[in-house]
Design a protein around this nucleic acid. Structure first.
Lengths: 254, 254
DNA sequence: CGATGTATTGAACTCGATCAAACAGTGTGG
DNA sequence: CCACACTGTTTGATCGAGTTCAATACATCG
Protein backbone atom coordinates (compact mmCIF):
# COMPACT_ATOMS: atom_id res chain seq x y z
CA UNK A 1 0.00 0.00 0.00
CA UNK A 2 2.43 2.66 -1.10
CA UNK A 3 -0.10 5.47 -1.03
CA UNK A 4 -1.08 4.84 2.55
CA UNK A 5 2.54 4.61 3.55
CA UNK A 6 3.11 8.03 2.03
CA UNK A 7 0.28 9.50 4.03
CA UNK A 8 1.56 7.99 7.23
CA UNK A 9 5.05 9.20 6.66
CA UNK A 10 3.65 12.64 5.93
CA UNK A 11 1.71 12.74 9.18
CA UNK A 12 4.46 11.32 11.27
CA UNK A 13 7.46 13.20 10.00
CA UNK A 14 7.16 15.90 7.36
CA UNK A 15 4.22 17.40 9.16
CA UNK A 16 5.95 17.61 12.51
CA UNK A 17 7.33 20.83 13.95
CA UNK A 18 10.60 19.06 14.72
CA UNK A 19 11.30 18.64 11.06
CA UNK A 20 9.77 21.89 9.83
CA UNK A 21 11.98 23.94 7.53
CA UNK A 22 10.52 27.08 9.13
CA UNK A 23 11.26 25.99 12.72
CA UNK A 24 13.94 28.59 13.31
CA UNK A 25 11.68 31.55 12.55
CA UNK A 26 8.40 30.20 13.93
CA UNK A 27 6.91 31.19 17.28
CA UNK A 28 7.60 27.63 18.39
CA UNK A 29 11.33 28.13 18.03
CA UNK A 30 12.28 28.29 21.71
CA UNK A 31 10.24 25.32 22.87
CA UNK A 32 11.88 22.32 24.49
CA UNK A 33 11.49 19.03 22.60
CA UNK A 34 8.56 17.72 24.62
CA UNK A 35 6.80 21.11 24.57
CA UNK A 36 7.29 21.28 20.84
CA UNK A 37 5.67 17.86 20.49
CA UNK A 38 2.74 19.08 22.60
CA UNK A 39 2.48 22.25 20.53
CA UNK A 40 2.48 20.08 17.44
CA UNK A 41 -0.71 18.34 18.54
CA UNK A 42 -2.60 21.66 18.48
CA UNK A 43 -1.79 22.24 14.85
CA UNK A 44 -3.79 21.28 11.83
CA UNK A 45 -2.42 21.64 8.35
CA UNK A 46 -5.33 22.43 6.05
CA UNK A 47 -5.13 21.89 2.31
CA UNK A 48 -2.75 24.40 0.70
CA UNK A 49 -4.23 27.46 -0.93
CA UNK A 50 -3.74 28.24 -4.59
CA UNK A 51 -2.73 31.67 -5.80
CA UNK A 52 -5.60 34.11 -5.33
CA UNK A 53 -7.43 32.01 -2.71
CA UNK A 54 -8.15 33.62 0.62
CA UNK A 55 -7.13 32.19 3.98
CA UNK A 56 -9.68 34.34 5.76
CA UNK A 57 -11.52 37.53 5.10
CA UNK A 58 -12.29 40.67 7.05
CA UNK A 59 -15.49 40.07 8.97
CA UNK A 60 -15.06 36.30 9.36
CA UNK A 61 -15.37 35.01 12.87
CA UNK A 62 -12.02 34.94 14.64
CA UNK A 63 -11.19 31.66 16.32
CA UNK A 64 -8.18 30.37 14.45
CA UNK A 65 -4.74 31.81 14.13
CA UNK A 66 -2.39 30.77 11.36
CA UNK A 67 1.29 30.49 10.69
CA UNK A 68 2.57 30.57 7.14
CA UNK A 69 4.28 27.25 6.53
CA UNK A 70 5.32 27.69 2.92
CA UNK A 71 4.63 30.19 0.16
CA UNK A 72 3.62 33.79 0.61
CA UNK A 73 0.54 35.91 1.14
CA UNK A 74 -0.63 39.48 1.11
CA UNK A 75 -2.64 40.95 3.99
CA UNK A 76 -4.97 43.82 3.21
CA UNK A 77 -7.71 45.89 4.71
CA UNK A 78 -10.59 47.50 2.92
CA UNK A 79 -11.88 51.04 3.27
CA UNK A 80 -15.54 51.92 3.57
CA UNK A 81 -15.69 52.62 -0.15
CA UNK A 82 -14.29 49.22 -1.05
CA UNK A 83 -10.77 50.24 -1.95
CA UNK A 84 -8.13 47.92 -0.60
CA UNK A 85 -4.77 48.66 0.95
CA UNK A 86 -2.17 45.95 1.36
CA UNK A 87 -0.67 46.21 4.84
CA UNK A 88 1.96 43.56 4.47
CA UNK A 89 3.40 40.57 2.68
CA UNK A 90 4.01 37.47 4.76
CA UNK A 91 6.27 34.50 4.42
CA UNK A 92 7.27 31.29 6.16
CA UNK A 93 6.96 31.53 9.94
CA UNK A 94 4.76 34.63 10.03
CA UNK A 95 1.77 34.71 12.33
CA UNK A 96 -1.58 35.66 10.81
CA UNK A 97 -4.90 36.67 12.28
CA UNK A 98 -4.01 38.08 15.70
CA UNK A 99 -5.33 41.59 15.04
CA UNK A 100 -8.79 40.02 14.93
CA UNK A 101 -8.71 39.39 18.65
CA UNK A 102 -10.31 42.56 19.89
CA UNK A 103 -13.41 42.57 17.76
CA UNK A 104 -13.64 38.77 17.72
CA UNK A 105 -13.63 39.01 13.94
CA UNK A 106 -10.71 39.23 11.58
CA UNK A 107 -10.39 42.83 10.50
CA UNK A 108 -8.26 42.17 7.48
CA UNK A 109 -8.05 39.60 4.72
CA UNK A 110 -5.22 37.32 3.69
CA UNK A 111 -4.76 36.02 0.18
CA UNK A 112 -2.19 33.61 -1.20
CA UNK A 113 0.26 35.04 -3.73
CA UNK A 114 1.30 31.56 -4.81
CA UNK A 115 0.49 28.03 -3.70
CA UNK A 116 0.95 28.26 0.05
CA UNK A 117 0.40 26.11 3.10
CA UNK A 118 -0.43 27.08 6.66
CA UNK A 119 -0.49 25.81 10.21
CA UNK A 120 -3.85 26.40 11.81
CA UNK A 121 -4.33 26.67 15.58
CA UNK A 122 -7.56 27.32 17.48
CA UNK A 123 -6.85 30.47 19.42
CA UNK A 124 -8.32 29.19 22.70
CA UNK A 125 -6.07 26.14 22.60
CA UNK A 126 -3.15 28.36 21.79
CA UNK A 127 -3.96 30.63 24.71
CA UNK A 128 -3.99 27.66 27.08
CA UNK A 129 -0.69 26.41 25.74
CA UNK A 130 0.84 29.86 26.06
CA UNK A 131 -0.44 30.11 29.60
CA UNK A 132 1.38 26.90 30.49
CA UNK A 133 4.48 27.82 28.60
CA UNK A 134 6.33 31.09 29.15
CA UNK A 135 8.53 30.63 26.07
CA UNK A 136 5.53 30.31 23.82
CA UNK A 137 3.81 33.27 25.46
CA UNK A 138 6.97 35.31 25.02
CA UNK A 139 7.34 34.38 21.37
CA UNK A 140 3.71 35.21 20.76
CA UNK A 141 4.02 38.67 22.28
CA UNK A 142 7.25 39.22 20.39
CA UNK A 143 5.52 38.31 17.14
CA UNK A 144 2.81 40.88 17.84
CA UNK A 145 5.35 43.47 18.84
CA UNK A 146 7.37 42.75 15.69
CA UNK A 147 4.26 43.13 13.58
CA UNK A 148 3.51 46.50 15.18
CA UNK A 149 7.04 47.64 14.48
CA UNK A 150 6.69 46.55 10.88
CA UNK A 151 3.46 48.51 10.56
CA UNK A 152 5.06 51.59 12.08
CA UNK A 153 7.84 51.42 9.54
CA UNK A 154 5.26 51.28 6.78
CA UNK A 155 3.56 54.33 8.27
CA UNK A 156 6.86 56.16 8.15
CA UNK A 157 7.42 55.06 4.58
CA UNK A 158 3.98 56.21 3.47
CA UNK A 159 4.08 59.42 5.45
CA UNK A 160 7.57 60.69 4.75
CA UNK A 161 9.39 58.98 1.93
CA UNK A 162 9.38 59.88 -1.74
CA UNK A 163 8.76 57.10 -4.23
CA UNK A 164 12.42 56.41 -4.89
CA UNK A 165 13.01 55.76 -1.23
CA UNK A 166 9.87 53.67 -0.97
CA UNK A 167 10.99 51.29 -3.68
CA UNK A 168 14.51 51.10 -2.32
CA UNK A 169 13.22 50.43 1.20
CA UNK A 170 10.90 47.77 -0.09
CA UNK A 171 13.70 45.99 -1.90
CA UNK A 172 16.04 46.26 1.08
CA UNK A 173 13.34 44.75 3.31
CA UNK A 174 12.63 41.99 0.82
CA UNK A 175 16.31 41.26 0.52
CA UNK A 176 16.70 41.02 4.30
CA UNK A 177 13.62 38.85 4.49
CA UNK A 178 14.84 36.47 1.81
CA UNK A 179 18.20 36.24 3.51
CA UNK A 180 16.56 35.46 6.86
CA UNK A 181 14.76 32.62 5.13
CA UNK A 182 18.05 31.22 3.94
CA UNK A 183 17.98 32.54 0.41
CA UNK A 184 20.43 34.86 -1.29
CA UNK A 185 20.20 38.52 -0.33
CA UNK A 186 20.90 39.60 -3.88
CA UNK A 187 18.46 37.43 -5.71
CA UNK A 188 14.83 38.20 -5.17
CA UNK A 189 11.97 36.39 -6.83
CA UNK A 190 8.93 38.52 -6.20
CA UNK A 191 5.74 36.57 -5.63
CA UNK A 192 3.60 39.69 -5.91
CA UNK A 193 2.63 41.69 -9.00
CA UNK A 194 3.68 45.28 -9.68
CA UNK A 195 0.10 46.13 -8.88
CA UNK A 196 0.47 44.68 -5.37
CA UNK A 197 3.78 46.43 -4.82
CA UNK A 198 2.30 49.73 -5.93
CA UNK A 199 -0.73 49.28 -3.72
CA UNK A 200 1.44 48.38 -0.72
CA UNK A 201 3.75 51.35 -1.24
CA UNK A 202 0.95 53.82 -1.90
CA UNK A 203 1.95 54.71 -5.43
CA UNK A 204 0.94 54.11 -9.04
CA UNK A 205 1.96 50.92 -10.78
CA UNK A 206 3.61 53.00 -13.52
CA UNK A 207 5.85 54.70 -10.97
CA UNK A 208 7.01 51.34 -9.63
CA UNK A 209 7.87 50.23 -13.13
CA UNK A 210 9.65 53.47 -14.01
CA UNK A 211 11.78 53.44 -10.86
CA UNK A 212 12.79 49.82 -11.29
CA UNK A 213 13.97 50.62 -14.81
CA UNK A 214 15.74 53.71 -13.50
CA UNK A 215 17.55 51.68 -10.82
CA UNK A 216 18.50 49.24 -13.53
CA UNK A 217 19.94 51.96 -15.73
CA UNK A 218 21.95 53.17 -12.72
CA UNK A 219 23.37 49.65 -12.29
CA UNK A 220 21.78 49.21 -8.89
CA UNK A 221 19.50 46.41 -9.99
CA UNK A 222 18.96 43.97 -12.76
CA UNK A 223 15.26 43.64 -13.46
CA UNK A 224 13.74 40.72 -15.31
CA UNK A 225 10.04 40.77 -14.54
CA UNK A 226 9.53 39.25 -11.11
CA UNK A 227 13.18 38.37 -10.83
CA UNK A 228 15.22 41.19 -9.31
CA UNK A 229 18.97 40.99 -8.84
CA UNK A 230 20.54 43.51 -6.54
CA UNK A 231 23.83 44.56 -8.06
CA UNK A 232 24.71 47.33 -5.66
CA UNK A 233 23.40 46.73 -2.14
CA UNK A 234 25.34 49.71 -0.84
CA UNK A 235 23.69 52.26 -3.08
CA UNK A 236 20.28 50.69 -2.57
CA UNK A 237 20.70 51.06 1.20
CA UNK A 238 21.90 54.61 0.74
CA UNK A 239 18.77 55.52 -1.19
CA UNK A 240 16.52 53.74 1.28
CA UNK A 241 18.16 55.54 4.20
CA UNK A 242 18.18 58.83 2.30
CA UNK A 243 21.91 59.19 2.75
CA UNK A 244 23.60 61.78 0.63
CA UNK A 245 26.40 60.01 -1.12
CA UNK A 246 27.90 62.78 -3.20
CA UNK A 247 31.32 61.28 -2.52
CA UNK A 248 30.25 57.78 -3.40
CA UNK A 249 32.26 55.94 -5.98
CA UNK A 250 32.34 52.16 -6.08
CA UNK A 251 33.87 50.84 -2.88
CA UNK A 252 32.62 49.92 0.55
CA UNK A 253 31.91 52.31 3.36
CA UNK A 254 34.39 52.61 6.18
CA UNK B 1 -0.43 69.27 59.12
CA UNK B 2 -2.65 70.05 56.19
CA UNK B 3 0.01 69.35 53.57
CA UNK B 4 0.69 65.86 54.82
CA UNK B 5 -2.99 65.19 54.99
CA UNK B 6 -3.27 66.12 51.33
CA UNK B 7 -0.53 63.73 50.38
CA UNK B 8 -2.09 60.90 52.33
CA UNK B 9 -5.48 61.46 50.83
CA UNK B 10 -3.91 61.52 47.39
CA UNK B 11 -2.17 58.21 47.94
CA UNK B 12 -5.10 56.51 49.53
CA UNK B 13 -7.93 57.60 47.30
CA UNK B 14 -7.36 59.77 44.25
CA UNK B 15 -4.45 57.60 43.23
CA UNK B 16 -6.36 54.36 43.41
CA UNK B 17 -7.66 52.51 40.37
CA UNK B 18 -11.07 52.19 42.03
CA UNK B 19 -11.55 55.91 41.84
CA UNK B 20 -9.77 56.55 38.56
CA UNK B 21 -11.71 58.61 36.04
CA UNK B 22 -10.21 56.49 33.27
CA UNK B 23 -11.23 53.17 34.83
CA UNK B 24 -13.79 52.34 32.18
CA UNK B 25 -11.33 52.52 29.30
CA UNK B 26 -8.22 51.18 31.04
CA UNK B 27 -6.91 47.64 30.63
CA UNK B 28 -7.87 47.13 34.29
CA UNK B 29 -11.54 47.62 33.51
CA UNK B 30 -12.71 44.01 33.82
CA UNK B 31 -10.91 43.21 37.04
CA UNK B 32 -12.81 42.14 40.15
CA UNK B 33 -12.48 44.49 43.13
CA UNK B 34 -9.76 42.53 44.91
CA UNK B 35 -7.83 41.96 41.69
CA UNK B 36 -8.04 45.65 40.93
CA UNK B 37 -6.60 46.42 44.35
CA UNK B 38 -3.76 44.00 43.65
CA UNK B 39 -3.19 45.54 40.25
CA UNK B 40 -3.11 48.90 41.92
CA UNK B 41 -0.10 47.91 44.00
CA UNK B 42 1.98 47.36 40.84
CA UNK B 43 1.43 50.89 39.69
CA UNK B 44 3.57 53.90 40.33
CA UNK B 45 2.44 57.36 39.37
CA UNK B 46 5.54 59.35 38.43
CA UNK B 47 5.57 63.12 38.41
CA UNK B 48 3.42 64.47 35.55
CA UNK B 49 5.18 65.55 32.38
CA UNK B 50 4.97 69.05 31.05
CA UNK B 51 4.22 69.79 27.42
CA UNK B 52 7.19 68.81 25.27
CA UNK B 53 8.73 66.45 27.84
CA UNK B 54 9.33 62.88 26.81
CA UNK B 55 8.02 59.83 28.61
CA UNK B 56 10.54 57.59 26.90
CA UNK B 57 12.59 57.67 23.79
CA UNK B 58 13.41 55.24 21.03
CA UNK B 59 16.43 53.24 22.10
CA UNK B 60 15.78 53.45 25.85
CA UNK B 61 15.80 50.15 27.66
CA UNK B 62 12.34 48.60 27.77
CA UNK B 63 11.24 47.50 31.19
CA UNK B 64 8.27 49.70 32.00
CA UNK B 65 4.94 49.99 30.31
CA UNK B 66 2.72 53.01 30.79
CA UNK B 67 -0.92 53.91 30.73
CA UNK B 68 -1.95 57.49 30.05
CA UNK B 69 -3.80 58.69 33.13
CA UNK B 70 -4.58 62.23 32.10
CA UNK B 71 -3.58 64.54 29.29
CA UNK B 72 -2.40 63.50 25.86
CA UNK B 73 0.75 62.48 24.04
CA UNK B 74 2.12 61.91 20.58
CA UNK B 75 3.99 58.73 19.69
CA UNK B 76 6.53 58.96 16.89
CA UNK B 77 9.27 57.00 15.23
CA UNK B 78 12.36 58.35 13.57
CA UNK B 79 13.81 57.42 10.21
CA UNK B 80 17.48 56.76 9.61
CA UNK B 81 17.92 60.34 8.39
CA UNK B 82 16.39 61.81 11.53
CA UNK B 83 13.00 62.76 10.17
CA UNK B 84 10.15 61.93 12.50
CA UNK B 85 6.75 60.47 11.78
CA UNK B 86 3.98 60.62 14.33
CA UNK B 87 2.28 57.22 14.49
CA UNK B 88 -0.48 58.13 16.89
CA UNK B 89 -1.95 60.42 19.48
CA UNK B 90 -2.86 58.86 22.80
CA UNK B 91 -5.25 59.79 25.56
CA UNK B 92 -6.54 58.60 28.91
CA UNK B 93 -6.48 54.82 29.22
CA UNK B 94 -4.10 54.15 26.33
CA UNK B 95 -1.29 51.70 26.77
CA UNK B 96 2.23 52.86 25.83
CA UNK B 97 5.50 51.07 25.27
CA UNK B 98 4.46 47.55 24.31
CA UNK B 99 6.00 47.59 20.84
CA UNK B 100 9.38 47.74 22.59
CA UNK B 101 9.02 44.17 23.76
CA UNK B 102 10.70 42.37 20.92
CA UNK B 103 13.95 44.28 20.79
CA UNK B 104 13.96 44.89 24.54
CA UNK B 105 14.21 48.60 23.76
CA UNK B 106 11.48 51.07 23.00
CA UNK B 107 11.41 51.59 19.28
CA UNK B 108 9.45 54.80 19.36
CA UNK B 109 9.28 57.92 21.46
CA UNK B 110 6.41 59.43 23.39
CA UNK B 111 6.10 63.13 24.13
CA UNK B 112 3.48 65.00 26.15
CA UNK B 113 1.29 67.41 24.20
CA UNK B 114 0.14 69.07 27.43
CA UNK B 115 0.68 68.45 31.12
CA UNK B 116 0.00 64.74 31.40
CA UNK B 117 0.24 62.01 34.01
CA UNK B 118 0.88 58.33 33.63
CA UNK B 119 0.63 55.00 35.39
CA UNK B 120 3.91 53.13 35.27
CA UNK B 121 4.15 49.36 35.57
CA UNK B 122 7.28 47.20 35.41
CA UNK B 123 6.63 44.85 32.55
CA UNK B 124 7.81 41.73 34.38
CA UNK B 125 5.42 42.42 37.24
CA UNK B 126 2.68 43.05 34.75
CA UNK B 127 3.42 39.77 32.99
CA UNK B 128 3.12 37.89 36.27
CA UNK B 129 -0.14 39.59 37.09
CA UNK B 130 -1.51 38.84 33.64
CA UNK B 131 -0.46 35.24 34.00
CA UNK B 132 -2.48 34.94 37.19
CA UNK B 133 -5.41 36.84 35.81
CA UNK B 134 -7.11 35.89 32.54
CA UNK B 135 -9.13 39.12 32.39
CA UNK B 136 -6.02 41.22 32.56
CA UNK B 137 -4.25 39.07 30.01
CA UNK B 138 -7.24 39.35 27.72
CA UNK B 139 -7.42 43.13 28.08
CA UNK B 140 -3.73 43.41 27.40
CA UNK B 141 -3.94 41.40 24.19
CA UNK B 142 -7.01 43.37 23.16
CA UNK B 143 -5.13 46.61 23.69
CA UNK B 144 -2.32 45.39 21.43
CA UNK B 145 -4.79 44.16 18.86
CA UNK B 146 -6.65 47.48 18.97
CA UNK B 147 -3.38 49.32 18.49
CA UNK B 148 -2.54 47.19 15.45
CA UNK B 149 -5.95 47.91 13.98
CA UNK B 150 -5.43 51.62 14.56
CA UNK B 151 -2.09 51.46 12.79
CA UNK B 152 -3.61 49.59 9.87
CA UNK B 153 -6.22 52.27 9.47
CA UNK B 154 -3.47 54.87 9.38
CA UNK B 155 -1.70 52.86 6.70
CA UNK B 156 -4.90 52.89 4.65
CA UNK B 157 -5.27 56.61 5.20
CA UNK B 158 -1.70 57.33 4.13
CA UNK B 159 -1.74 54.92 1.23
CA UNK B 160 -5.09 55.60 -0.37
CA UNK B 161 -6.83 58.76 0.81
CA UNK B 162 -6.51 62.25 -0.62
CA UNK B 163 -5.90 65.07 1.81
CA UNK B 164 -9.53 66.05 2.17
CA UNK B 165 -10.41 62.55 3.29
CA UNK B 166 -7.41 62.45 5.60
CA UNK B 167 -8.49 65.53 7.47
CA UNK B 168 -12.11 64.40 7.62
CA UNK B 169 -11.08 60.96 8.89
CA UNK B 170 -8.83 62.51 11.48
CA UNK B 171 -11.62 64.71 12.79
CA UNK B 172 -14.11 61.85 12.80
CA UNK B 173 -11.67 59.72 14.78
CA UNK B 174 -10.95 62.54 17.20
CA UNK B 175 -14.63 63.16 17.64
CA UNK B 176 -15.29 59.49 18.40
CA UNK B 177 -12.36 59.47 20.76
CA UNK B 178 -13.55 62.52 22.65
CA UNK B 179 -17.01 61.06 22.91
CA UNK B 180 -15.63 57.78 24.27
CA UNK B 181 -13.88 59.81 26.95
CA UNK B 182 -17.18 61.36 27.95
CA UNK B 183 -16.80 64.66 26.12
CA UNK B 184 -19.01 66.12 23.43
CA UNK B 185 -18.63 64.61 19.96
CA UNK B 186 -19.03 68.00 18.33
CA UNK B 187 -16.62 69.99 20.38
CA UNK B 188 -12.99 69.16 19.94
CA UNK B 189 -10.16 70.91 21.67
CA UNK B 190 -7.03 69.80 19.88
CA UNK B 191 -4.00 69.34 22.09
CA UNK B 192 -1.66 69.06 19.10
CA UNK B 193 -0.39 71.74 16.74
CA UNK B 194 -1.19 71.93 13.03
CA UNK B 195 2.37 70.83 12.53
CA UNK B 196 1.71 67.59 14.45
CA UNK B 197 -1.54 66.96 12.59
CA UNK B 198 0.20 67.49 9.26
CA UNK B 199 3.05 65.21 10.22
CA UNK B 200 0.67 62.50 11.41
CA UNK B 201 -1.45 62.69 8.25
CA UNK B 202 1.52 62.82 5.89
CA UNK B 203 0.81 66.24 4.44
CA UNK B 204 2.02 69.83 4.60
CA UNK B 205 0.93 72.09 7.42
CA UNK B 206 -0.43 74.58 4.89
CA UNK B 207 -2.72 71.95 3.42
CA UNK B 208 -4.15 71.17 6.86
CA UNK B 209 -4.85 74.84 7.40
CA UNK B 210 -6.39 75.33 3.97
CA UNK B 211 -8.71 72.35 4.29
CA UNK B 212 -9.89 73.38 7.72
CA UNK B 213 -10.81 76.79 6.35
CA UNK B 214 -12.46 75.14 3.37
CA UNK B 215 -14.56 72.89 5.62
CA UNK B 216 -15.47 75.97 7.58
CA UNK B 217 -16.61 77.81 4.49
CA UNK B 218 -18.74 74.78 3.60
CA UNK B 219 -20.39 74.94 7.03
CA UNK B 220 -19.04 71.56 8.05
CA UNK B 221 -16.85 72.94 10.83
CA UNK B 222 -16.29 76.00 12.87
CA UNK B 223 -12.58 76.54 13.35
CA UNK B 224 -11.12 78.72 16.06
CA UNK B 225 -7.48 77.79 16.38
CA UNK B 226 -7.27 74.58 18.40
CA UNK B 227 -10.98 74.63 19.06
CA UNK B 228 -12.95 72.81 16.36
CA UNK B 229 -16.73 72.58 16.38
CA UNK B 230 -18.29 70.01 14.10
CA UNK B 231 -21.39 71.56 12.62
CA UNK B 232 -22.28 68.82 10.18
CA UNK B 233 -21.23 65.35 11.37
CA UNK B 234 -23.06 63.75 8.48
CA UNK B 235 -21.13 65.48 5.76
CA UNK B 236 -17.87 65.02 7.61
CA UNK B 237 -18.48 61.28 7.76
CA UNK B 238 -19.45 61.27 4.10
CA UNK B 239 -16.14 62.87 3.14
CA UNK B 240 -14.16 60.56 5.41
CA UNK B 241 -15.89 57.49 3.93
CA UNK B 242 -15.59 58.88 0.41
CA UNK B 243 -19.32 58.60 -0.13
CA UNK B 244 -20.68 60.42 -3.12
CA UNK B 245 -23.45 62.55 -1.82
CA UNK B 246 -24.64 64.28 -4.97
CA UNK B 247 -28.15 64.05 -3.63
CA UNK B 248 -27.22 65.41 -0.26
CA UNK B 249 -29.11 68.46 0.97
CA UNK B 250 -29.40 69.19 4.68
CA UNK B 251 -31.30 66.40 6.38
CA UNK B 252 -30.36 63.13 8.01
CA UNK B 253 -29.74 59.87 6.20
CA UNK B 254 -32.47 57.25 6.18
C1' DC C 1 -2.49 31.63 -33.20
C1' DG C 2 -5.35 35.21 -30.87
C1' DA C 3 -6.79 36.22 -26.06
C1' DT C 4 -5.94 37.72 -21.57
C1' DG C 5 -3.32 39.35 -17.74
C1' DT C 6 0.93 41.78 -16.69
C1' DA C 7 4.55 45.20 -17.51
C1' DT C 8 6.81 49.08 -19.72
C1' DT C 9 7.07 53.60 -21.79
C1' DG C 10 5.43 58.23 -23.27
C1' DA C 11 2.80 62.65 -22.77
C1' DA C 12 -0.24 65.67 -20.28
C1' DC C 13 -2.25 67.05 -16.17
C1' DT C 14 -3.15 67.77 -11.21
C1' DC C 15 -2.92 67.69 -6.38
C1' DG C 16 -0.49 69.01 -2.90
C1' DA C 17 4.27 70.65 -1.69
C1' DT C 18 7.18 74.46 -1.44
C1' DC C 19 8.28 79.18 -1.22
C1' DA C 20 6.97 83.57 0.57
C1' DA C 21 4.65 86.79 3.26
C1' DA C 22 1.45 88.42 6.41
C1' DC C 23 -1.15 87.73 10.60
C1' DA C 24 -2.56 86.41 15.46
C1' DG C 25 -1.70 85.14 20.02
C1' DT C 26 1.53 85.09 24.04
C1' DG C 27 4.97 86.23 26.89
C1' DT C 28 9.04 89.52 28.18
C1' DG C 29 11.08 93.41 29.56
C1' DG C 30 11.82 98.41 29.24
C1' DC D 1 1.33 100.12 28.40
C1' DC D 2 3.59 99.38 24.24
C1' DA D 3 7.58 97.51 21.48
C1' DC D 4 9.66 93.29 20.68
C1' DA D 5 10.49 88.66 19.81
C1' DC D 6 8.65 84.22 19.15
C1' DT D 7 5.69 80.57 17.92
C1' DG D 8 1.87 78.98 15.54
C1' DT D 9 -1.49 79.78 11.86
C1' DT D 10 -3.47 81.47 7.66
C1' DT D 11 -3.37 82.85 2.87
C1' DG D 12 -1.42 83.55 -1.79
C1' DA D 13 1.52 82.22 -5.90
C1' DT D 14 4.39 78.96 -8.08
C1' DC D 15 6.26 74.55 -9.11
C1' DG D 16 7.11 69.71 -9.53
C1' DA D 17 6.71 64.73 -8.32
C1' DG D 18 3.89 61.46 -9.30
C1' DT D 19 -0.76 60.33 -11.15
C1' DT D 20 -3.62 59.53 -14.97
C1' DC D 21 -4.52 58.50 -19.62
C1' DA D 22 -3.03 56.08 -23.62
C1' DA D 23 -0.44 53.14 -26.36
C1' DT D 24 2.67 49.41 -26.79
C1' DA D 25 5.24 45.29 -25.45
C1' DC D 26 5.60 40.96 -23.27
C1' DA D 27 4.35 36.60 -21.49
C1' DT D 28 1.44 32.72 -20.59
C1' DC D 29 -2.16 29.68 -22.04
C1' DG D 30 -6.30 27.88 -24.16
Amino acid sequence: MPEQKDIISFDSAKNKCQYCHAASFCISKDLADNDLAAFNTLIKRPKPLQKGERLFQAGDKFDLIYIVHSGSVKAYIESSDGEQQITGFNFSGDLLGIAGLEENHYNYSVEALETSSFCEIPFTLFENAAHENPELQQQFLCAMSREMTREQKLILLLGKMDSKRRIASFLVAMSARMQAQGYSADNIILSMTRHDIANYLGMAIETVSRLLTQFQSEDILHVAGRHITIINQHRLHAISDNFIESDYHTGETA
